[in-house]
Simulated assay, not measured.
Amino acid sequence: MEKRNLTIIFLITLMAVMGVASITPAFPSIIRHFNISPPQVTKLIIVFTFPGIFLAPVVGILADHWGRKTILLPSLLLFGLAGTGCFFTKDWEILLILRFFQGIGAASLGSLNVTLIGDLFSGEKRTEVMGFNASILSVGTAAYPFIGGALAMAGWQYPFLLPFLAIPTALLAIFYLKNPEPGKPQKLKDYLRRTWKNINKKTVWGLFIINVLLFVVLYGAYLSYFPQLMEERFGATALQIGLFMSGFSLVTAITSSQLKRINSRVTPKAQLNISFMLYLVSMLILSVTSEWWHLIIPLITFGLAHGMLIPGIQTLLVGFAPLSERAGFMSINSMVLRLGQTFGPLFIGLFYTLGGTEIAFAGGAIVSLVMLVVSRFMVKI
């Protein structure tokens, strides 16, 4: 049963990261097809992540009240249907509308997968599974750019066929996911009071802020402007862009899979600070690189940072709430990271308008420094 549960959780994780990673290699093709600018194409990210800002806390509360599956299944189905619908439209405005509805479906996926791990496992086993889940997440973010880039060689719309995989995932969850569900629902007032008590801690707020900034770097700088950098500076094709983006994520996957071993040698606080410095190095190099081989260093440093930071933060946060409030608590984390995903492209886009990709990645370096400051003064672990 444990193996079956883990397989389904990992499939949910793969769906949660599909929505952006699979389509970014097609951005240059989409820009040309619709005759839009690089900042405009990032709307495909913004409208997808925006619903999660408001819906994530709601679906978290409902998952604690009605049960995990009750929220998970319609979310997967909507994600799959709206996402696949993007393949069939030729209109930019309709494409954005479908991405918005796909984002509604995705709003719960990134928190419920981690919530299920927290429900099913504890102690060192939880840390180990979080590392494996982050590794699976990174395998997805490694594979999707390559798959999306290969599909985009046939046409900009072909990466939008991938969300259909969420439909069989929903069917598997219906019949085979065996997870504990919260007991008798609490009164809403008591539930909100207890959840707020779990959240209202300086370290938790610090981790939430770091999560916002982390996704500003990931979605604002890397996912939005790395494809543009490769086409502008190196004349790269969609497939080549996907291959390089997969390289970043492959390093992340390997690092995440070793989280248990890393934890035995490096304290959680040190892991955070090392990650921020590695992000800084990668952003600075990407801002000035002019040779293909220069990309090897940010490939490694960004991958190492991401591989430590994502599962590290998730493991720390999931331990702050009991099962009865865990979905609501983790949905707040999902909400704040959606803030980073949504406003990251807008924020880094301001730097892009000032000086192109060079200044965009310099903006990412500034955000990396801010993460280090927040960790120094707010995170006490």
Rank of each mutant, 00 (worst) to 15 (best):
S122I: 09
M330A: 11
T315S: 14
I147H: 04
H306M: 14
K3Q: 13
L76H: 11
G364M: 06
R326H: 01
V374F: 09
L95E: 02
L73W: 08
L72Y: 07
F343A: 08
F164W: 09
L250F: 15
M18S: 12
G220E: 05
T84N: 10
S108D: 04
F234V: 03
T357A: 10
N263F: 12
P298L: 13
E358A: 14
L218M: 12
I254S: 03
Q314Y: 13
L309S: 10
T342A: 13
A360D: 02
I167K: 11
S122G: 06
F34P: 03
G118P: 05
Q228K: 05
E231Y: 00
A236R: 00
T169G: 04
L250T: 12
K69A: 03
I12T: 11
G242R: 02
I262W: 03
E2Q: 14
M230H: 01
V47Y: 12
R265Y: 10
T195I: 03
A16M: 09
F160E: 05
A327D: 03
V114D: 00
I274T: 11
T342F: 11
L177I: 01
P311M: 07
L286C: 10
L317K: 07
V373C: 01
M378I: 03
Y219I: 00
F10W: 03
T195A: 10
N263T: 07
N200G: 00
I262F: 10
F164D: 01
L14I: 00
G355P: 12
F343D: 06
G312Q: 12
G105P: 07
I31M: 14
T169D: 02
A236S: 12
L286P: 04
S282L: 12
F377K: 14
P74K: 13
S108M: 04
T289G: 11
A327S: 15
I167T: 10
L72Q: 07
G148K: 07
M330I: 13
K197I: 06
P28L: 06
S122E: 15
L162P: 00
V20F: 11
R193Q: 08
F121H: 07
A238S: 14
H294F: 15
N5S: 11
V367M: 07
M283S: 05
Y176A: 03
G148L: 09
A253E: 08
A142P: 01
A360G: 02
M378E: 01
W156R: 02
S249N: 13
L171F: 15
P25D: 04
V367G: 06
Q102V: 02
A134E: 08
L213S: 00
S256R: 10
P38S: 04
A143I: 03
K3C: 00
A154K: 11
G344Y: 08
G67T: 07
L346P: 00
D91I: 08
L304P: 09
G307F: 12
I36F: 09
P145Y: 02
R233K: 15
V374A: 09
I366G: 03
L317G: 05
E2P: 01
L316D: 08
Y158T: 09
S368H: 04
S249P: 04
L98I: 03
I296W: 14
M283N: 04
W66T: 05
V114N: 06
P38N: 01
Q228L: 08
T267I: 02
H294W: 14
